[in-house]
Amino acid sequence: MCVSARECTRNADGTWRPGYVAAALVFAIGMAGTTLPTPLYGLYQEQLGFSELMVTVVFAVYAVAVITVLLVAGNYSDETGRRPVLLCALGLSAASAGCFLLEGGLPLLFAGRLLSGCAAGLLSGAATAAVIELAAPGQRA
């Protein structure tokens, strides 16, 4: 077991493991990005004048998208490779951020939440597998 992060990012022969760090950063940044717009929902509610129930529905769209993508495409990175799935997830995350930036009503909020959920579903499967595969031997647990 590695004692420090520095030890976990090196091969058994002491050489640098940049793929491990990159995969972990993609995973962390991607998953953090799916939650960043959450504090804005109260502001959107005030500006757009929708109800508490609609805020709940906006949150639920994310959960439905994550579960659906995990069930439908959870192992897609096993077939196509980790990198294409991670790049697709990051693209969906960027599109989601665009929806929140351009927000002009509920349709864009729903689209942003849907895209964010799809990105999180793809990221959670592919990035977890990538980080495990790139971990140092004996550190995969």
Rank of each mutant, 00 (worst) to 15 (best):
R10H: 11
A136G: 07
M1N: 08
V57A: 15
V66N: 09
A12I: 07
R83W: 11
P37A: 08
P137I: 01
V131H: 05
L106F: 03
S96H: 08
E46T: 08
Q139Y: 04
A97Y: 04
S4K: 02
A120T: 09
V85S: 11
N75S: 13
G138K: 05
E46H: 07
E52Q: 11
E46Y: 01
V85G: 07
L115H: 05
P84N: 08
T38I: 13
G121V: 06
V55I: 13
A95D: 09
G104R: 10
L123A: 03
L87F: 14
L43N: 06
P84K: 02
N75E: 05
A120Y: 08
L134R: 05
G138L: 07
G104I: 03
G49L: 09
V85N: 10
N11H: 14
G112N: 08
V57H: 06
G30M: 11
L43Q: 11
M1H: 13
S4R: 10
Q139A: 11
C8M: 12
V55N: 06
C8Q: 08
V26K: 01
A32D: 06
C8L: 12
E52C: 00
G121N: 04
L90H: 12
V26C: 12
R113D: 10
N11V: 00
S116L: 05
A12F: 00
P18K: 01
T15D: 02
A65C: 13
T34M: 12
G49N: 09
M54F: 07
T128N: 15
L53M: 12
R10E: 13
P39G: 06
G112S: 08
T9L: 12
T35E: 09
R6V: 09
S77Q: 09
P18T: 03
L40G: 14
F110C: 12
G105C: 09
V3A: 14
G49H: 07
Y41M: 13
L109W: 05
N75T: 14
L101Q: 02
A12H: 00
V69M: 13
G81M: 09
A129T: 13
G121K: 06
R140F: 07
Y44C: 04
F100E: 00
L25D: 01
V26L: 15
L114P: 03
T15G: 09
V69P: 01
V26E: 01
A119K: 06
V85C: 12
A60P: 06
S51V: 11
L86A: 14
P107M: 09
